[in-house]
Amino acid sequence: MPQKRNYNRRRRRKNKYNQPLIIFLTIIILLGAGVFGFRRYSEYKQEAQTEQVETEHNAFVKKVAPYAIYLGKEYGVLPSITIAQAILESDWGRSTLAKDYNNYFGVKGSDPSNTKVLQTKEYTDGQWVTINGRFRVYSDYRESMKDHAELLVNGTTWNSQQYQQVIHSKDYIEAAVALQTDGYATDPGYTSKIIRVIQKYNLKKYDEGIK
């Protein structure tokens, strides 16, 4: 009997010493599960956000593509160029100029009755500077798209031939280069951005049958 009592005491002591280890392991497991759960939640949230952005981008392209094709047939401007410029200039229709004034291309004007003064960034003397610009205000995005096409066809008030290289380009790469050389934008990376957007969203397919 005494031996049995000694054995029980040793067993109780052993269990007593194991309790901190069990608690420690439980905490580690719970922390690990929490970290894994948080990581999975973050991944899920990021996937959902990416999917939402892609949906919004596809919706924007679907919105402007039909009229871009119409203008391409009417004025000779490649639809891929029109769509890509609308994407870049309006930030997918989310810029203040696009949302509030339906100006998808950053087209400027001089008449106070149909323009709005807003801040914009331009690349001058090797650096980006913020300036105030007077931009056209439109009743809807189609009016903006049409004005953009007419600007490329008719040129500016000081040079009616300014964008003729763009109009006569046979493919989107040639047209994107011409936009840069003809002075449409001051951004030194404008050509590469246009080409990248066209290729990423396969906008070339909208050019079929235009030229």
Rank of each mutant, 00 (worst) to 15 (best):
I194C: 03
P79T: 03
L78R: 02
L151W: 06
P188W: 00
R196G: 03
E51H: 06
S95K: 06
Y104D: 10
G189I: 00
Y172G: 02
A175F: 05
E174P: 09
R5G: 04
V153T: 13
Q119L: 08
D147F: 12
I29E: 07
V35A: 15
F24S: 14
E174V: 08
Y17P: 00
Q49H: 08
P20Q: 02
N159R: 10
G109S: 10
Q52I: 09
V77N: 10
Y75V: 04
R142K: 14
G72Y: 01
V129H: 04
G76S: 03
K63M: 13
I173F: 07
S42R: 11
Y44L: 09
E122M: 06
R39I: 14
G183K: 09
N154M: 09
I194T: 11
I28D: 06
D111L: 04
Q3I: 14
F135K: 03
V64K: 04
R12H: 13
F135D: 07
Y172M: 03
P112I: 10
A59P: 00
Y163R: 07
G209R: 03
Q119G: 13
A178D: 07
Y101L: 12
V153F: 06
K14C: 10
K62D: 05
A176R: 00
F105G: 05
R9F: 11
S80I: 01
I195P: 06
T120R: 04
K73G: 09
F60T: 03
Y17H: 12
W92A: 01
L25P: 03
Q161W: 07
Q180R: 12
S139N: 14
T82H: 07
D187Y: 06
S113N: 15
I29T: 14
D207K: 01
D171A: 05
K108T: 11
K108A: 05
I29K: 02
N159M: 12
S169W: 06
A59V: 03
T181H: 07
A176M: 04
I69Y: 09
L152T: 07
I27L: 15
G189N: 14
G72A: 02
F105R: 08
T82G: 08
K193D: 10
I173P: 11
Y163K: 09
K170C: 09
G189V: 00
V177D: 10
R39L: 15
Q180F: 00
N202L: 01
D140E: 13
W92D: 03
D171H: 10
D187I: 05
D111I: 03
E74T: 14
Q49R: 12
Y190R: 09
S160F: 10
R13N: 12
Y206V: 01
K200G: 00
V153G: 08
K14S: 13
K4A: 13
V129I: 15
G34V: 03
G189D: 14
Q180E: 09
Y44C: 00
T157D: 15
K99R: 15
L151P: 06
T181P: 04
S113R: 13
Q85T: 07
M145H: 08
K16P: 00
G34A: 05
S160K: 15
Q49C: 00
Y70M: 10
